[in-house]
Amino acid sequence: MARKPKAEGAASRLWKASPLTFVTLIAAAIVSFFPFYWMVVIASRTNDAIGSVPPPLTPGGNLFDNIGRVLDNENAAFVTGLTNSLIISTVVTVAVVFFSSLAGFAFAKLRFRGQNAMLLIILATMMVPVQLGLIPLYQMMVKFGWQNQLQAVIVPSLVSAWGVFMMRQYVSQTVPDELIEASRVDGASTWRIYWSIVMPALRPAAAVLGLFIFMQTWNDFLWPLTVLQDPANPTVQISLRSLNQAYYTDYSQVFAGTALATVPLAIVFILFGRQIISGIMEGAVKA
């Protein structure tokens, strides 16, 4: 592509962050990190730390001891919980991202009968509070014989109205109609257009969606609690909840478990996050 030297100078000046912005970002980073850090502090201390005034601000030496107690806690079945949650969250995330981008593309760039009505239905679904669906949904699972099975948690979550809507907005903003038309003229099939034009353009948004769906599925509690009745076959959130005593909370153990349950999330974030962090920007700023 041809470059205009003059423009480059003016643009790059504007693209630099001011010192004020920098300070704001540092403040935002501290605010974001503090509760996370504090979780590690409590996880590495004894249960007495939580009520101390002033609160302890440095990690103690009990982290591995507390993690050991989490793993040894028979009621919690923590390792099974982690494994189950990994399976559930992975399958759900892949499915939601795929189905959402496919449907989002169809709604944004294809034309078909009933399109607007369908989109409206999708929008409306998001607006209905899900909690009340629990009982009919549970009865359905009983009919299918899916109680205690992971698919009872997976299948209802395979699609997300929210994901379709997000992808639809993003595709309509990012992929120009002309590009699609041009491909059509060149004889590309709809699938090819989706696969080689839309998908690549969607990567940053797909990363955000995937990240978010993974977190959401990972943190889901009420539905798994209802349908996975066997305490030996929990999700990680149910395991975490079982670390609580009946009437009082052993915070050091709960936070050690929480920290442990956050490790997979951190890994997933780093994987997905690369798309967001190093995504288009690298090329764009240089251009």
């Binding site: 970002l25 935002a28 980073a29 974001s32 990190f33 509760p35 996370f36 979780m39 990240l211 978010f212 977190m215 943190n219 959130q237 975490l240 709960v254 936070f255 929480t258 349950a261 956050t262 999330l265 951190a266 974030f269 996050g273 967001i276 962090i277």
Partner: peptide, 15 residues
């Protein structure tokens, strides 16, 4: 800085 934006999302609701 971009990483830090996601830290609250991965922290569990209970914590």
């Amino acid at each position: 800085f971009r990483m830090t934006m996601a830290v609250p999302i991965i922290t569990s609701t209970a914590a």
